[in-house]
């Protein structure tokens, strides 16, 4: 046990938590609006990583500017995914949508391994670091946190302040009633799926500025997103951010008190326990 590491490790965990939270928000938004668990979440995160990377290497665009393109790309990809894989089975039992999105997962991974191979890539970013005593904070992480916060605030404002956002929430609450009130539910569902994918890809883009990655790298973050989503309550986007921070802190802190290998046991243990004890998440029902 290393008490000196306590503060830097928690700061590090906290910062990563914001990025995890952003990824989880995409998953939870889709579930909240249409009760679909998107099993293509991980590959989509990986696509976000590659998008930022390729835009950077092919066009020499700064990764942070590239993220803007990723936002648009994610939205479009998500809407396409919705109409190709989800729309036809939107009212079918859960298993069907789970498998439909999983088939997309296979397709992305299948194509991705052919196109990108599984050689690790990394984006060469250096924004310096702040140092005080034992604490070192990388500039890239600070920017990642700021962007994650900005996107979250944007999502919040969109959902709660705009007309379209309100229809998304109406559809999430009661799709049949929303339809009766004249809301174009298909459009809203497609848009929500698009936003969910957009959030996942954006978080992938941010992660790519921090760590090296392959097309398979999304899997880890997909599992983390599941944990976060359950922590924050399935279908609750704000809960996802808090859940992300909790998970990040948990990761940061547990590594001090026990070998790194035990962290996933704690994570998944907590995950299953929360599902059993409080399936609505730690922070109450939506």
């Amino acid at each position: 046990m290393n008490i000196d590491a306590l503060v830097p490790s928690s700061i590090d965990g906290l910062m990563l938590g914001f990025v995890y939270g952003l990824a989880a928000m995409g998953l939870t938004l889709i579930f909240g609006v249409m009760r679909v668990i998107n099993l293509a979440h991980g590959p989509v995160i990986a696509l976000g990583m590659f998008a930022v990377y390729l835009i950077g290497t092919q066009f020499g665009v700064n990764p942070y500017l590239g993220l803007i393109a990723v936002l648009v790309l994610g939205l479009v990809l998500g809407i396409v995914m919705y109409f190709v894989a989800v729309h036809r089975v939107i009212n079918a039992p859960e298993l069907t949508t789970l498998l439909a999105t999983f088939s997309v997962n296979l397709m992305i991974i299948g194509l991705g391994t052919v196109v990108f191979t599984t050689t690790p890539r990394a984006i060469d970013m250096d924004l310096g670091a702040f140092r005080t005593g034992a604490i070192t904070i990388l500039g890239t992480k600070v920017v990642a946190v700021l962007i994650a916060i900005a996107v979250t605030v944007g999502l919040y404002l969109f959902l709660y302040r705009t007309r379209v956002g309100k229809s998304i929430r109406a559809v999430a609450n009661n799709r049949a009633a929303a339809e009766l009130m004249g809301i174009n539910t298909t459009g809203v569902l497609a848009l929500s799926f698009g936003i969910g994918i957009m959030l996942a890809m954006t978080s992938g883009g941010l992660i790519a500025t921090l760590f090296s990655f392959t097309i398979l790298a999304g899997g880890v973050y997909e599992l983390k997103s599941f944990v976060i989503v359950v922590l924050g309550g399935l279908g609750n986007p704000t809960g996802a951010l808090v859940g992300g921070i909790v998970l990040g802190l948990l990761e940061g802190l547990t590594t001090i008190f026990m070998p790194v290998g035990w962290v996933p046991i704690i994570e998944y243990g907590v995950f299953v326990l929360i599902l059993l004890i409080r399936p609505t998440g730690l922070f109450g029902a939506r």
Partner: peptide
């Protein structure tokens, strides 16, 4: 305990259990 969960919650829990067991065995 786990079969009290319904639908998607059960499916997620089984994923969590597999991952928890895998990480446990790894250590």
């Amino acid at each position: 305990p786990v079969l009290r969960l319904r639908g998607a919650y059960f499916a997620l829990a089984t994923i969590g259990i597999n991952e928890a067991v895998r990480s446990f065995v790894t250590n």
